[in-house]
């Protein structure tokens, strides 16, 4: 592998890892802080991608579509927590798995009713459609760099929110003693509703961002869901920081796995998970 190819693969790994992080960060928060196993989390990614497709078709502009999609997915997240997930906190994991598995089916059905079952593509916006020439034959698309940059900004914002704001302190406090947080006059139910909506929005946003580079197809959320659970397990349940590190590791393992051992590429991610869990059974980072 020459240096340029290596660089390209590295950028691909970074971009894939960062995108995974967007989806997995919400999953790890919802799992780690609220104690809910949400199998439907991948569906939000799918929803986002379809929103990007449908809203770009309607408005003719991906950025407008993304803004609308963000508002829409935040609303969906808020209502879902209020109507369904808030009833799950005190239930056991089996009930959670049943409900959220059911939701996957419901969401796919709704998607089928609204936009059908065809595979779609979304055009990369004009201003980001260029490529950067790296060597005579190799180039790297600007849109992918844009994706990575947006993800990095969001990761920094998330870190700042959780670590350095009072809201973040309240969120973390709630994961250790919800009742005590309430006794301090804090409406923790509302905060959790917002965190849930944030998780949904991040996953959907990842889907919107990815839509122009991957096609938009039925069931696209399920694949992402499985990898995201691997991210959560490797990173440590509830740790946003851990999710970032794990997602990047998976990005590297997956991307370079495909280059170095193409025949067994599907395995590298799970080998990585096994190795990390042997080393640290609770994941790389413990709870937030």
């Amino acid at each position: 592998m020459d240096l340029t190819t290596f660089l390209i693969q590295l950028l691909n790994a970074l971009q894939y890892g960062l995108l995974l992080f967007l989806v997995a960060s919400g999953l790890t928060l919802i799992f780690g802080i609220m104690g809910i196993i949400n199998l439907a989390h991948g569906s939000f990614y799918m929803m986002g991608a379809y929103m990007a497709f449908a809203l770009t078709s309607a408005t003719g502009n991906l950025f407008v579509a993304i803004l609308l999609g963000i508002a829409l997915s935040a609303l969906i997240g808020f209502l879902l927590e209020w109507g369904l997930f808030s009833r799950l906190y005190k239930r056991d994991h089996l009930d959670q798995v049943l409900l959220t598995y059911g939701l996957i089916l419901v969401f796919e059905e709704i998607r089928s009713m609204i936009v059908g079952d065809d595979v779609h593509g979304v055009r990369i916006p004009e201003m980001l459609s260029a490529s950067i020439q790296l060597s005579e034959t190799l180039s790297y698309p600007v849109y992918r760099l844009f994706m990575s940059a947006v993800c990095i900004v969001l990761a920094v914002l998330m870190y700042w929110l959780i670590r350095h704001t009072r809201l973040g302190m309240m969120i973390r406090a709630g994961s250790s003693n919800r009742e005590m947080v309430q006794s301090l006059g804090i409406n923790i139910d509302l905060i959790y509703r917002l965190v849930f909506a944030l998780g949904v929005t991040l996953a959907a946003f990842a889907g919107m961002l990815a839509a122009p580079v991957s096609s938009v197809y039925p069931g696209m959320g399920n694949q992402v869901l499985i990898i995201c659970f691997v991210v959560v397990v490797i990173g440590g349940v509830g740790s946003v920081w851990g999710a970032l590190v794990a997602a990047l590791l998976i990005g590297l393992a997956d991307t370079f796995g495909k280059v170095i051992i193409p025949d067994y590429a599907g395995l590298t991610v799970y080998l990585l998970m096994a190795a990390v869990l042997l080393w640290r059974p609770e994941g790389i980072f413990r709870r937030i």
């Binding site: 302190m169 973390r172 406090a173 994961s175 250790s176 003693n177 005590m180 006794s183 709870r287 937030i288």
Partner: peptide, 10 residues
């Protein structure tokens, strides 16, 4: 409260 009401992770 009775017992320890602190947030150990903060």
């Amino acid at each position: 409260p009775e017992g320890r009401g602190i947030f150990p992770n903060l």
